[in-house]
Design a protein around this nucleic acid. Sequence first.
DNA 1: TAAATAGTGTCTCTTAGACATTATGGT
DNA 2: ACCATAATGTCTAAGAGACACTATTTA
Lengths: 263, 263
Amino acid sequence: MSMEQEKEQDQGQQRYDAKKYRTPDGIPADIVMFTLAKQERKASTKSLPRFDLKVMLIRRRSWPFAGAWALPGGFSQEDESLYETARRELKEETGVDGHHLEYLGVYSKPGRDPRGWIISHAFFALVEEWVLEKRQSADDAQEVGLFTVKEALDDLQLAFDHREILEDAYKRIQQQMLHTTIAKQFLPPHFTLGELYQVIQTVVPDFAELNFIRKITSTRSRQGILEEVHDEKGVPMLSNQYSQRPAQLYRFTDYTPRLSIYT
Amino acid sequence: MSMEQEKEQDQGQQRYDAKKYRTPDGIPADIVMFTLAKQERKASTKSLPRFDLKVMLIRRRSWPFAGAWALPGGFSQEDESLYETARRELKEETGVDGHHLEYLGVYSKPGRDPRGWIISHAFFALVEEWVLEKRQSADDAQEVGLFTVKEALDDLQLAFDHREILEDAYKRIQQQMLHTTIAKQFLPPHFTLGELYQVIQTVVPDFAELNFIRKITSTRSRQGILEEVHDEKGVPMLSNQYSQRPAQLYRFTDYTPRLSIYT
DNA sequence: TAAATAGTGTCTCTTAGACATTATGGT
DNA sequence: ACCATAATGTCTAAGAGACACTATTTA
């Protein structure tokens, strides 16, 4: 607590007057919208889709950073929490509600925004590819771009400290992919283990498990995070959408194991 | 971005005037200061210390929530990041610098602070017991209390939404205790495996490992997070501070394994 | 010599890891 | 017949889990 504010309270004053202190000029929420975009493949036969992890950016048209790509976002209002701000912005940007939306962190380095004292709160969202593609083509008011994370980090000059935010978001989505079941956000309700493996590998490229299927299906310690899908008669449900040989369909349970470096 | 602000930018205006919009009345950082307090034990002989996880609170003397216990904290200034605010407050509260300090999250629910639109950022810190004890006795300006987390959550009416913050902080420190090596913050540079086990169990009571010592010392997958301490001549260093039989001393390496629910 | 912690022996069952092999069915 | 994916077989070494047992020293 700053000294002035502290003293004021010590004197038992009944009103707090914000006008006496310098206060921020705005509190935006910026959103890193990730999607998994299906790669074009010269499919000689049925094959598993490969994906790219992409992020949606908007080209700024006004000062500051006019012309630069930036994360979509907007200012918070007094009658909403920052999570609600982010939800609202996400809906405005995509036209769709109900996506996974998660808080990332606060960005408050002095000077990060030339417009003044502006403290930004970053979120990341997981959105289906078609939502962003629709947005990309339909919106004539703003130039919208979908870039792979690698492109965005290596080739673009992002506005503000959005590069740092994107880096942090990338680390976080990788961590969440391995620690939680967010993979389900990128998968249909029922999926094959091959699909799941593709999703994990897209987000965490150095995740490699030779015996992935066996480990998932036959180790006690993983029991519980996935379950086989059966139809009404109890017959296992299979899919041959991506392979000749039909593959068992799975879904996530609502169980997430506790991880530990000590055991 | 709110519609007015958006439009303004679209018109290519060169200046952003915060005065036109409602802006927050203050952006404080609140700090959950955790410590491990040694329990008194009727030690008939040498024995391992048992601990309580405690949290430092300050009794408010002015409106709002006068008389209630609250997390220490203070308002952020324009020339500092929120992390720097928290660092500064932590130093002011403890008189000591250099503690583990980690961002927790933002608390922005409308109406959370009767003084106005005040968005709080929570941090948690890990502090040695003696630092808080000194603070507790030396400070005649403020009433300072050290409570176990259970007491604070079960018995106290905390100011603002500080109960929610404390709950979140408790969950987070438990997660961090198992996913990272923050246990080192509560341990001397060299420690025995018994000490480490006590620390983990204090923070995560339902962590139970019958063969803790063996698992740490003899499994390949944990190799790397701890190493034995030797003296200059290469002789293993032992301690019998807490036991009759001398125990090997360990230290953390700087390696933290990557965890995954899939493998 | 009892107390309290440190550490090892032993046994069974499970899992990891590396590869080879078989299964499926459309193109 | 070939291809791409799905899934199982096989073997070895390592780890999990449970518990009994030994080791060390001093109050």
